[in-house]
Amino acid sequence: MRIDTRINGRDVVLEIEEGEFLARTLRRYGYLSVKEGCETGSCALCTVWLDNSPVLACATLSGRVSGHEITTIEAVAEEAGAFAEFMVAEGAEQCGFCSPGFTMTVLAMKRELKNPTDEEINHYLAGNLCRCSGYKGQLRAVRKFMGVK
């Protein structure tokens, strides 16, 4: 079936299969920053924005994004790049497979929280799993990126 939607600021028509989830659709259409790490909505590697709020693309039916706006990290390269500088300065990206989804959640958090505590940060990002880094480097990068005092 066909749906009309908006991805990264462009109106697009997507051909999707019934029951297909957004993570698959996006990857099929070449938005390769969207990673998948599980089948149970547990890892948040697939995080994209739906109308500017982070969602799990693996748990969002593609049929339901019709008429909505999707944003992947490709569209926020500048802001993502700014955060990436803090990440690499800490060495907090290891394999990097979790990083795009993590970054999308962090950028959304930055809009929502001002001067958050570590607890608030960890709560907001709790769903984003990372098996490599041990999370502490990510936390240091996030604190600096958010300008936490």
Partner: peptide, 24 residues
Amino acid sequence: RKIPKIDGIALVKGAPAYTSDLDI
């Protein structure tokens, strides 16, 4: 020294780099 990984920025920004990104 604290040298950033040479591929770090690209990976964080979601550049296609892994098997499923390159075999499409």
